[in-house]
Design a protein around this nucleic acid. Structure first.
Lengths: 148, 148
DNA sequence: CGCAGAGTGTAGCCAAGGCTACATCATAGG
DNA sequence: CCTATGATGTAGCCTTGGCTACACTCTGCG
């Protein structure tokens, strides 16, 4: 019975921890949009075209799943797509993609700097990047700039 | 092997990337179980008791949600709980909790070593820890052991 | 020119992980 | 001892992100 059921006894530590988990859950929701934006930007840059099937194949999901996600990007004003034409990013979408791309690189570089093998670094970065705060990113940059 | 829609055109890079996303999605699913196991272990260690309501409050979810998750832990052989008694961990559950605890600490320590402020380190670790591979953890350990 | 087949889109299903609302249990105080 | 109240458990709903199945376009080639 460590916990008081009373009102005033709300431990701040408890609330802090709860808020942390809450943020982590929210980050998880943003991750999908970020991944799509980054991938679409990548496809547009390299191949010149971003088609739902390509996106789906790269992400390892069905094309239907990709199309649903693309619809979400459109709803959020990040992408545009007319039926049977490719997908494109709005200005906001490109800004997001760029931020994500930079963050991804930075996370990979940090992992490499810590001695993580390249393949593992790429793999882990895919999951980690969505949970790195701006504050941490800034720290990463400082760390890489000023080498050991 | 999975289904090739068209034989020769399957780029390995594409499959590699798809597999990475797939792993990240799987990690996300394991995260919930890990968080609960760690928290239950923590409550048992400090308070001596892990009650659904406490768990829910700490994680910032409703007690019903916590109870559902606890049921999952039971299904997976990680926890035991009899109605209206607290929750306990099986041997497997404790092993998991211990691994998670160590990993959490290691991630926080790495973030601190990189110059991330303490509060941000704790926050970010909550999300990051579930995506750090064993290979990366080993690298983190080496990095911390041999100080710059 | 027309059509086969790949690409695209739609519909409907599922599981997971949230929630609220309600019902049941356990227990501490009066 | 018995009841009020907080803790616990159950039911049912919602949303998200997967999937398959099916229908519709587009287009290159015969």
């Amino acid at each position: 019975m460590t916990i008081e059921p009373h009102p005033a006894a709300e431990l701040p530590a408890e609330r802090t921890q709860a808020r942390r988990f809450d943020k982590a859950r929210h980050a998880q929701s943003a991750a999908l949009v970020e991944d799509y934006a980054e991938l679409i930007a990548d496809l547009l840059a390299s191949g010149g075209e971003a088609r739902p099937t390509d996106i789906a194949r790269r992400l390892g999901v069905s094309h239907a799943t990709a199309i649903k996600a693309i619809a979400r990007l459109k709803r959020e004003g990040l992408a545009t797509a007319k039926p049977y034409r490719g997908v494109f990013l709005t200005a906001a979408g490109e800004r997001l993609a760029e931020r994500v791309r930079l963050r991804h690189r930075l996370v990979v570089d940090i992992l490499l700097a810590l001695g993580v093998p390249a393949e593992a670094a790429e793999q882990d970065a895919e999951g980690i990047e969505h949970h790195v705060s701006d504050v941490a990113l800034a720290a990463f940059e400082r760390f890489l700039d000023r080498p050991r």
